[in-house]
């Protein structure tokens, strides 16, 4: 008897109308509804293919009668990539170190340029329009190579001669590791500017979202420009810094260049070559390498952003 009652109560609870749900549960329901489109896309167009890649990486793939068949070999492919192949781990380390060198400078420069672009000054529309060009050019639309004959014009263009600065810094007695890093930044400043178009745009939008009243208050209280930057601008754009970090690290890994023998090749194309130009045997091995590659990127992003997000300021 009691059991039956319980069931009835449960049924009643189940058929409770949406209106009687408490606020938290309603929030959860709407959370799922808002997320539904993305969730469907994730499952059908992202996770399914990704699981395939993971499965391949655990198999030794073979071509039998024009069909791929995999035989499960466990972690063999991973072991091979990490312990037997002497190059791969070295390439990963190279990509990682390169990222460490590149990304902070990119973020710093992007924030700096965005702050310059942000204020009130004549011709700001013009300058803002100019700094969207790097994003367009980075997509490769305007870069082309002629297949038949290449133009025999090899212009060695250096925008600025930085040799004197290098000499000055090298001879100043500061440790060489530091000076080489510094001079490489200065020499590459123009190439870095052309790679941080997206970050500039994101920062510009982040800066614009800061209420001008905050700056007014700071001025009334007598803050110096540096204090205003540290106490207002930096905390308010810190969420944007996090996004830019994720984007920059992901892009840096995705475009990582490594030196294979005499040439510099993109790490992704190295993996692609191993996967598709070798035996079908290598298909599983290539999948394992790309899996390690994603995992390395993810772990890096996780660790760095985990640290940075402690300092990020949110309103709630």
């Amino acid at each position: 008897m009691k059991k039956g009652e319980n069931k009835a109560v449960k049924k009643k609870a189940f058929s409770l109308s949406y209106k009687k749900l408490d606020y938290e549960k309603k929030t959860a329901v709407w959370g799922v509804i808002f997320l539904l489109p993305w969730l469907l896309g994730l499952i059908f167009f992202f996770l399914r293919p990704l699981v395939n890649t993971v499965w391949y990486s655990l198999c030794s793939m073979q071509m039998v009668d024009g069909k791929f068949t995999g035989t499960f070999t466990g972690l063999n492919n991973f072991k091979y990539a990490l312990t037997v192949n002497a190059d791969f781990t070295q390439y990963l380390a190279e990509a990682f170190l390169n990222m460490l060198k590149e990304v902070p400078f990119q973020i710093f420069l992007a924030l700096f340029i965005a702050m310059l672009l942000n204020g009130e000054y004549k011709g700001r529309g013009f300058f803002r329009a100019i700094f969207v060009i790097p994003i367009i050019l980075a997509t490769g639309v305007a870069t082309f190579s002629l297949s038949e004959t290449s133009l025999a014009v090899t212009e060695s263009e250096t925008v600025m001669d930085m040799q004197w600065l290098t000499d000055l810094v090298v001879n100043s007695g500061i440790p060489t590791e530091l000076t080489s890093l510094l001079t490489s930044y200065v020499e590459n400043i123009f190439t870095v500017v052309t790679t941080c178009g997206v970050q500039i745009l994101l920062f510009l939008s982040g800066l614009q979202a800061i209420s001008p009243t905050l700056y007014e208050v700071a001025q009334m209280e007598g803050c110096t420009a540096f204090e205003t930057f540290c106490k207002i601008t930096l905390p308010m754009v810190s969420p944007t810094i996090l996004v830019c970090l994720v984007y920059s690290i992901a892009e840096s890994f995705a475009n990582a260049k490594v030196s294979v023998g005499q040439q510099t090749v993109a790490l992704s194309s190295y993996i692609h070559d191993v996967t598709f130009t070798g035996d079908p045997m290598y298909y599983g091995y290539g999948s394992a390498m790309s899996f390690i590659y994603f995992a390395a990127t993810l772990v890096t992003i996780g660790v760095i952003c985990g640290i940075v997000s402690k300092g990020v300021f949110y309103y709630d």
């Binding site: 167009f45 992202f46 293919p49 984007y247 992704s268 994603f294 993810l298 996780g302």
Partner: peptide, 18 residues
């Protein structure tokens, strides 16, 4: 976490299935 994963994984890894 999967949002970050979609940023990291390049699209050519999943093109055939798509």
């Amino acid at each position: 976490f999967f949002v970050v994963l979609t940023i990291v994984v390049p699209s050519d890894g999943i093109m055939l299935a798509q």
